[in-house]
Write a protein that binds this DNA or RNA. Structure first.
Length: 788
DNA sequence: ATATATCATGTTTTT
DNA sequence: CATGATATAT
């Protein structure tokens, strides 16, 4: 078996830790201790390419690190090397990651190499955490106070809604969600309101897109708040308008490192480039084949263009894979080879593994059977002594998870779901936090509005609207408006008393702020506000869980100094403590799996429309398809030893059964390394036993199946649509099936693969209601029936 | 103001 | 199907 050499934590270097006493110059001390021509022991563990990536310290470096080639090891060792050779102190290295988890891991591993001096790495963190740090220092240059609030997606959407309404627009026609994603997209690309391309700005709200964006920004300033995008945008703005500030950071950051560079967006790129213009000691590590966040603004171009942006950059390829068996690497490479526009890497392994398993491809009648079969496979592996911790099911979309959970619950098979709603995104947690936010920051209108009538206290829509009007007219925060309105007769008596009570409570809580510990106060607030009572009275199934979460929240607060520091922290670090717990199979999305590895990987749902996802192909055409393929590549390369790819011949989509077509990605796996499981399978690969369910053509001829052609047609249509401007006279064209010709008349006889023959009784767009001779009345998509 | 009915909607997700 | 958001009735 091939074990990743970077899979386990690196041992601390003996003889190194003792010499590296804590302190600002620990690196220097260590360097001296290591000096005199003594080899640096940490370098011995590296292969030649890795070593080059570590030792090429000065100037721009692009490290193209394929999956499982020791990317993290290179990054951490490089930092250790810089510290150990005394080139920089811990505080002079900028190291950026995308997730808090990655940052945490990196810090831990550096500690393992250089000892406690890693703690001094104040600038190791996510783009957003570092952006926040910079922005807090120079808040006034952005019209903010340094105690600004960071809004999350939920707050942002509510703010958008308020602005849409304030502008007198119909919030039905122009959904806040859409405005939010537009603004988000613009910020991802580093665009300020006046820089938004006209065409795009026009597409929203009758051409007022950019105005709304501007209004949104102004509103943020009034609230003394920023959104995630601002955490990058504002530092860029400060750097550009204050060269002295920029220069001080350029000087400070003697070495810069970026992880997962293929995931950077334009704003992050601009931010980095400004900082790197100083000494150009920028090292980026990434894998263009693992870029799967394009839909969120990541620009693969950033990595593809690095050499042009930083002339003279050293390019180092890490292709030696320590993770997977030959067949797995061959399959992954073959599949990704179908993409164009790659920098091109070929993974290889030096290990001869004669008994390496081929990939298994299998089919199920429907998704239920797929879950059942995978459950059986897992149990069988378990009987052979394999650990559940080393097995993962990687799905394309989270709705696929449920079927597995259901099945595993009945089997009593322990599983762990990664992803899903995070702890701090849950309703009860956000409500509780809103209370705390109002206490700490009375001007936090969004928080105040969230809980003004939660629990129900007779302050309804009308009252809130009055509050808003007053606040806007007088240019004061909602809370202030509330205070003033309780002095007048404008509100209904009942509402007025309720509001008065609430305000009085807040006054009381605020005065307790320094008398009590923040955890005590939190308990009092949740109690006195009636919030816990609300859930205790709630008879629904999830109420007890919510109460439990609230307790957990208070427990978590204990780790922080004060209420304010707690709030500061959670807006950036929104990840749940992952319960290590006991042995369990992991279920997660392919996206969430990036960076992880398992002995056994199950990849269910390889069907056209689901994977590649229809929407990715429709909305982004060829680029979308290639990103889906990279996702498949990520999935395959998570496995160390064995992979089971599955597809279901029938799948329930939005409640109705649809027959499916196997994913084109299946055809892109190399036959020599794939074993098609015939037993009990559907799909008749290789012309095997024809059954009455047989509609899936053999591998080689999938391209001629009606389904594949349909997919191609859809793709062509989709690509066309997305190339054309999305607007006609400033109006967004509905993305739906406007171009759909009603191909079926009422009374037409049709045939459906699952339900057999029937008569069309109603047509509604592309949805048909069909009375089937055997199966009764069903609603089906027209693309799944044929005229007879 | 709030409880209930009806309706549209439906990837991937960090910060 | 299942959820959330909005219209309607109480």
């Amino acid at each position: 078996m091939i074990r990743s050499t970077d899979g386990s934590a690196m041992p601390a270097i003996t003889g190194f830790e003792e010499t590296s006493a804590p302190g600002p110059r620990a690196g220097g001390i260590a360097a001296r201790a290591l000096g005199g021509g003594r080899p640096s022991p940490y370098l011995d563990k590296l292969n030649p390419e890795q070593r080059r990536a570590v030792e090429t310290v000065d100037g721009p470096v692009l490290v193209l690190a394929g999956a499982g080639t020791g990317k993290t090891r290179v990054l951490t060792t490089r930092i250790a090397h810089i510290l150990a050779t005394g080139r920089a102190r811990p505080g002079e290295i900028l190291a950026v990651t995308f997730t808090n988890k990655a940052a945490r891991e990196m810090k831990e591993r550096i500690s393992g190499l250089v000892g406690p001096s890693a703690e001094g790495m104040a600038w190791l963190g996510t783009f957003h955490a570092i952006g926040t740090r910079i922005l807090r220092r120079h808040a006034e240059l952005s019209g903010l106070r340094s105690d600004f609030t960071i809004l999350d997606a939920d707050d942002q959407i509510r703010l958008c809604k308020q602005i849409i309404q304030a502008e007198g627009l119909d919030d039905k026609r122009w959904p806040a969600r859409q405005m939010h994603s537009l603004i988000d997209g613009w910020k991802n690309r580093g665009l300020t309101p006046d820089a938004v391309p006209l065409g795009e700005a026009r597409a929203f709200a009758n051409g007022r897109g950019a105005d709304l964006y501007k209004a949104y920004q102004e509103r943020l300033r009034v609230l003394n708040a920023v959104d995630f995008g601002d955490l990058l945008m504002e530092p860029i703005h400060i750097f550009r308008s204050h060269p002295d500030v920029l220069a001080s950071y350029q000087e400070r950051f003697r070495y810069m490192l970026v992880d997962e560079y293929q995931d950077t967006n334009v704003a992050q790129y601009l931010w980095l480039r400004l900082l790197a213009q100083g000494n150009r000691n920028l090292c980026v590590v990434g894998d263009d084949d693992q870029s799967i966040y394009g839909w969120r603004g990541a620009e693969v171009d950033n990595i593809l263009r690095f050499e042009q942006d930083f002339p003279g950059a050293a390019v180092i390829r890490l292709e030696r894979n320590y993770r997977s068996t030959g067949p797995i690497l061959a399959a992954a490479s073959h599949l990704i080879g179908h993409n164009e526009g790659r920098l091109g890497k070929t993974l290889f392994t030096e290990h001869e593994d004669h008994d390496a398993e081929k990939l298994t491809v299998a089919s199920a009648w429907d998704s239920e059977e797929e879950a059942r079969a995978i459950g059986e496979e897992i149990e069988s592996l378990q009987r052979k002594g394999k650990s559940l911790d080393e097995m993962a099911i990687l799905v394309r979309a989270s709705f696929q998870m449920r079927e597995f959970e259901d099945r595993f619950v009945t089997l009593g098979l322990p599983y762990r779901v990664i992803g899903g709603p995070r702890f701090y995104e849950r309703r009860e947690i956000r409500d509780a936090l809103a209370y705390f936010r109002v206490i700490v920051q009375p001007a936090d209108d969004l928080a105040f509005e969230r809980i003004i009538n939660t629990p129900k206290r007779a302050i309804g829509e009308v009252a809130v609207k009055t509050l808003h009007d007053t606040a806007r007219a007088r240019q004061i925060p909602l809370f202030q408006a509330a205070i003033e309105l309780t002095q007048t007769e404008e509100l209904k008596p009942k509402t007025r008393t309720a509001l008065k009570d609430l305000l009085a409570s807040f006054g009381r809580w605020r005065s307790e702020l320094d008398r009590l510990t923040h955890t005590e106060l939190a308990e009092i607030v949740l109690d006195e506000s009636g919030y816990t009572e609300m859930w205790r009275m709630d008879r629904s199934a999830d109420a007890p869980g919510r109460l439990e979460n609230l307790k957990e929240l208070v427990r978590a607060m204990d780790d922080f100094e004060s209420m304010a520091s707690f709030l500061e922290h959670i807006s950036l670090v929104m990840d749940t403590e992952n319960d290590a717990g006991s042995e369990a199979v992991t279920i997660m999305t392919l996206h969430a799996a990036k960076g992880l590895e398992f002995d056994t990987v199950f990849l269910p749902g390889w069907e056209e429309g689901l994977f590649p996802h229809q929407r990715a192909v429709d909305e982004s055409g060829q680029a979308g398809l290639e990103e889906e393929r990279r996702l498949a590549y990520v999935g395959l390369t998570r496995a160390r030893q064995r992979i089971f790819v599955w597809f279901a011949v029938n799948r329930r989509v939005h409640g109705m059964w649809q027959s499916t077509v196997p994913s084109r990605f299946l055809d892109e796996l190399p036959e020599a390394h794939v074993e098609v499981r015939e037993q009990g399978g559907y799909g008749g690969y290789g012309g095997y036993g024809e059954s009455r369910f047989d509609r899936v053509e053999p591998f080689s001829s999938t391209y001629s199946t009606p389904g594949w052609e349909r997919a191609q047609r859809r793709k062509a249509g989709g690509a066309q649509r997305s190339r054309e401007p999305m607007t006609i006279e400033g109006e967004l064209v509905a993305k739906s099936v406007a171009d759909h010709e009603p191909a079926f008349a009422i009374g037409a006889r049709v045939f459906h693969q699952k339900f057999g023959n029937g008569t069309v009784s109603a047509v509604e767009g592309n949805k048909l209601t069909v009375d089937f001779d055997k199966a009764g009345r069903k609603r089906v998509l027209d693309s799944f029936v044929q005229k007879t």
